[in-house]
Design a protein around this nucleic acid. Structure first.
Lengths: 205, 205
DNA sequence: TCATATTTGTGAAATTTGTAACGAATGAAA
DNA sequence: TTTCATTCGTTACAAATTTCACAAATATGA
């Protein structure tokens, strides 16, 4: 199979999310045109994205929602569940722990880590909070996939270094600073300030 | 001035963030090469981005950090402060209200709105929580720029409709669903599930 | 002064990404 | 059966974005 770009994969998850809703509404069929209208891309884009994975559309008819969803999920997730570890149980960390939008069979937060003594040992929404120093052991033991950095800016590089040493291959960084990692580790930065500011800038120009 | 793309603007804010740090460290000069290394892009990219706005680099020397930061900020913000309104004072909404990373002179949350009676009237981190029905009036009165949707999925479209009617030109949507808005309203979707899943997918392929 | 080492700004080339268009497949209706 | 309206999958095209590469500018040191 040819290489699939990061942008395509993000769109595929959008399609899956929408198909989920359609399936719950008992919709069996959908055309690229209508799916495009819902998710806000062009129909050609949808067909092209899907054609990376399969040929399951029927001309004149469209796609079977369940079949399409299953096919896309098979390719992007391969029946895996993503195992996350969270660093920093402050306001944002707690919000992530209690986020109701995770589909439990696809995303699971397996441990949280925190420096502050008073939070260690507590359980938030079913997730235990450990001391930061125990992280490498627990990450290896439970075979985590992705680390979430929700600690203050000054601690973010230190946490990132530890995540890399623990063998994680992906990091989502909510701290408002660039973290340095080896080329083979993927980082997704989410800086609320930059999201708000750049949207404002786009909306005004 | 020629049109500046969304991606370029997001990078410019990254540069500004990094320059801020350098200035605090009393660094006066920086080359495109070193800035590139810090933020993780190529030096050519940096020079090209900057050249959209000004010609203030000196060959053989580099850029003056303060001058570069001021110039970039002048173009992307024009001395404005972004005024945000927040919808939904749940876990995520509260985390955003208490987020310590906003530079107060650039970003200000001017009001929060919530349906649940018990939260209305409270003040969180200096921001007052109003009843959702008062939103249009307050948005118009205080001239808000951007709306943040941090309500449950089922209420997100309703809130989006109201934001559009209130005249906002930008929406950051944290609800895990696509919202329908007129073409002239800019939307930035941040779906935690999709961010985590697609990073996982990228890291594994 | 002159050679050398940096580093910018920019036009051209390369790459990536998205769009358009069309043949082929399908079903519905006359 | 034939026609018509849909819709897919794919190829060719267009647009956007990034990288390359080099002249020009600057500083340094012999």
């Amino acid at each position: 199979m040819t290489h699939i770009s990061r942008k395509t994969i993000a769109r595929v998850f959008l399609y899956i999310r929408t198909l989920d809703t359609l399936i719950r509404q008992k919709r069996n069929l959908i055309s690229s045109k209508e799916l495009a209208r819902i998710v806000g891309v062009t129909d050609a884009q949808i067909r092209k994205d899907i054609s990376n994975f399969a040929r399951i559309g029927r001309p004149g008819i469209g796609y079977n929602t369940q079949e399409l969803k299953d096919t896309l999920e098979e390719f992007v997730l391969q029946h895996n569940c993503v195992k996350l570890v969270l660093f920093g149980v402050g306001n944002l960390g707690t919000a992530i722990l209690q986020y109701p939008g995770f589909q439990k069979n696809k995303i699971k937060i397996i441990a949280a880590f925190e420096k502050k003594e008073e939070k260690i040992g507590s359980v938030i929404n079913g997730v235990r909070v450990y001391a930061a120093k125990d992280a490498p052991r627990i990450i290896a033991q439970k075979k985590a996939d992705i680390g979430i950095i929700a600690v203050p800016e000054r601690a973010s590089q230190e946490v990132a270094d530890m995540l890399v040493l623990s063998g994680l291959k992906g990091i989502v960084n909510f701290a408002p600073t660039t973290i340095a990692v080896p080329r083979n580790v993927m980082v997704k930065d989410i800086d609320f300030s930059i999201e708000f500011l750049s949207l404002f800038c786009n909306a005004c120009m």
